[in-house]
Amino acid sequence: MSEGQHYTVLERLANGLVRENPIFKLALSMCPAVAMTNNVRNGFLLGLAVLFVQVASNVTVSIFRRFIHERIRIPAYIIIIATWVSVSDMGLAAYAPGFYKEIALYVKLIVVFAIIISRLEVFASRNTVWPSFWDGMGMGLGFMFALMFVGVFREFLGSGSLWGIELLPFKPFFFWSLPPAGFFAIGLLMALFLWLERRFNAWRGRK
């Protein structure tokens, strides 16, 4: 990806959501996908925090990329990410204290999520502000939707509800709300998406 290459908004969003989905395709930052997906709400909130940090760091890095010395770029990126993580951590603690308690540790751990620093290195450090913004949007939304997707799957099957609202009067498959079920959910969904992709490609090849 060289500088000057043109990206459209739609292309960037599709890239993050589908083609390079951080969870199902790149398989980066799996920890929250396993631990924080037993209900949809946690997945959404954590996804929101990641979206914010990704977009803000992408924009910051692409603005200041000429000032950051090549040799110290990794430490500089880490400091920038840590700053935005602290900002979202303090913001959530102040304005959403009830929801924050459950995801507190994971919000702080966004600093070490590989997806964020890899986007800075691969994309934001080589592109201007606007594409970087949309790249961050795409990646963040892709992350958020992946978390929410697993969350919907597990919450509905595990406790028969969505976003805490009871849809079924019984728990269809209690197993899915147990913590270790996160591993199984990701494994199965990953295989499912791989299968769908193969079928899709085969179908397109035939046409």
């Binding site: 398989a27 270790p180 079920a181 996160g182 591993f183 199984f184 990701i186 494994g187 199965l188 990953m190 295989a191 791989l194």
Partner: peptide
């Protein structure tokens, strides 16, 4: 690859 690794980890 990864999917079966996740199931094993589970």
């Amino acid at each position: 690859g990864l999917p079966i690794a996740f199931v094993v980890a589970g």
